[in-house]
Design a protein around this nucleic acid. Structure first.
Lengths: 299, 299
DNA sequence: CGCTCTATGTGCATCAATGCACATGCCGTC
DNA sequence: GACGGCATGTGCATTGATGCACATAGAGCG
């Protein structure tokens, strides 16, 4: 009946990897060390190699074992999500407000802030334009721009919202299979996921300005969501905004002490827009959203 | 020993969902219908509800069943990747392939397909351009376009990939607080989340062409991810692609029997692109991805 | 060095899962 | 209406997985 590795055995290996001893695993899972030992033996047979080897402080994973554990982690998360499946006014604003924002920050912070505002002011209509761009030097047709990086424009007011970080991330599966570099020079031996350089307005977001070595292969996308998905699926090391991946088990930091780039996010509005109560409310809502979720931005 | 749903039982449910009959499943998995029946019964107990119900053409998934199948698919893929890791192959593709695709379908289907391909062919470089647009009438600078809706262009070949559905969805919190409409006319009493009409190339994706009544308030975004997030956060009823929200607990269908719009997705390439082994491999990878995940597209 | 404790592995008994034979119900054809 | 085929469910026998008791090995302490 089994042509794929047994997922239960993989989950047991995962617990062994976490706890290091069969007895501890047996206790945690409510069974005996004998069963644990046998299940690991069975899994080694399915996979055609040893997943564990002895070390002074208990069992350690072989390379094959690490790949298996990565798969187990993914399965565990899937099961956890399925298990979790079984369990939210008065100064009425109205009219239309148009905001331009980058796609990742837009979906993660701007949309929730605007929804919260709109729910308090149901007559307020909202238009979000997603584009990862520099601040416009001319009239842009929007009431407010949310931009990354420097925001030098003389005819508008810039309001600091937050800093976030670009860091290097890979998936646990990728790390387990190909290993991770120990220096920044080693990054060149890996696939790299980033923005499409030729279509990028904010060059701080791209690979080229990072001064990292040329990668072995590249996966470039104009959408940060596609980049995140590519890293999750093991395309390689990606230069990603921390708030999109921090705390998620599908991503591990890479060379976290050696490379990171802090980028500011600004709200930029012209004086005439700032006279609008609507726009002021949006700015307040954005500030509130980043304030309430600053741990995510600093993660 | 089990506090999470049994992954083996989930994989059996997945096969039932695909084949529709216990006997067929038993034959495929090398066991008996009796065992299949019992395992489904056991799974229903673990999940606290029925996963399958009878229909004229075999078993059909309940809503709970659909969630379970989604989890099973993720597990199957994880296991498949692990199994594939243990036995490699080598018809090495290399060079750059550039694909244009819409942002939602791009992140959900195209990026995973391309990552899978790139992992088999590490020398293959990938560029994804996200834009929700009509097929280009001229040379677009990409090897392959993935487009929504009609794909009438005389100088290129169109390859059908899949159909998906635009449906109305709201968040459970929104539904509980404000109720949901009982007719399509009632939709006008609610907030509506959709694309920005003035910036939309494929008008079938927008509110205007839906002929639904003008909403009380609107939340429009150029990014489908921002739209999804806005609906999740309770902005109102959204016209969303089923594959982005089906089976997720943050979204409930609205007037599912009264409104839906089926849209085709095509891969479009010029003859000279089609002569490229790379592009052919990408097309095959895309077909495989949508084939393996057709339940999500039909959900 | 001897003793104790902990960790893992082996053999036999027990328990849970599965296979097999049969029963029941439904649908289609003659 | 009767018959045949197919799909699913029940009861008992068989098989495979797990528990229990014991054995062996290694590490740490006196």
């Amino acid at each position: 009946m089994r042509r794929l590795p047994n997922p239960d055995d993989l989950l047991i290996l995962l617990t062994v990897a976490r706890l290091g001893r069969f007895n501890a695993v047996a206790e945690t899972l409510g069974t005996t060390h004998t069963t644990i030992s046998r299940r690991i033996l069975a899994l080694d047979k399915q996979l055609g190699g040893r997943t564990l080897e002895r070390s002074p402080h208990g069992w350690e994973l072989t390379e094959l074992g690490a790949s298996a554990v990565a798969a187990a982690e993914a399965i565990e998360e899937t099961l956890g999500s399925l298990a979790g499946l079984i369990g939210e006014d008065q100064n009425a604003l109205s009219g239309l407000v148009r905001i331009s924002t980058s796609d990742g920050f837009g979906a993660e912070f701007v949309a929730p802030a605007l929804v919260r505002l709109q729910r308090r002011h149901p007559l307020l209509n909202v238009e979000m334009l997603s584009a990862t761009r520099k601040v416009s030097q001319n009239r842009s047709g929007v009431d407010l721009e949310v931009v990354v990086g420097r925001a030098d424009v003389s005819s508008a007011q810039t309001i600091f919202l937050a800093n976030y970080f670009l860091r290097l991330y890979a998936s646990p599966g990728y790390a387990a299979e190909l290993g991770l570099p120990e220096t920044l020079d080693g990054v060149g031996q890996h696939g790299f996921v980033s923005y499409v350089e030729s279509a990028l307005q904010v060059e701080e977001l791209g690979h080229r300005s990072s001064q990292l070595p040329m990668p072995k292969s590249s996966f470039q996308a104009t959408s940060i969501f596609a980049q995140v998905e590519a890293v999750r699926r093991g395309a390689g090391i990606g230069l990603l905004p921390n708030f999109m991946v921090a705390g998620k088990p599908d991503f591990v930091p890479v060379l976290a002490h050696d490379f990171q780039r802090q980028l500011p996010i600004w709200a930029v509005a012209r004086p005439e827009s700032l006279r609008s109560e609507r726009v002021q409310a949006v700015i307040a809502a954005l500030k509130e959203e980043v304030h309430q979720r600053q741990e995510l931005l600093a993660a």
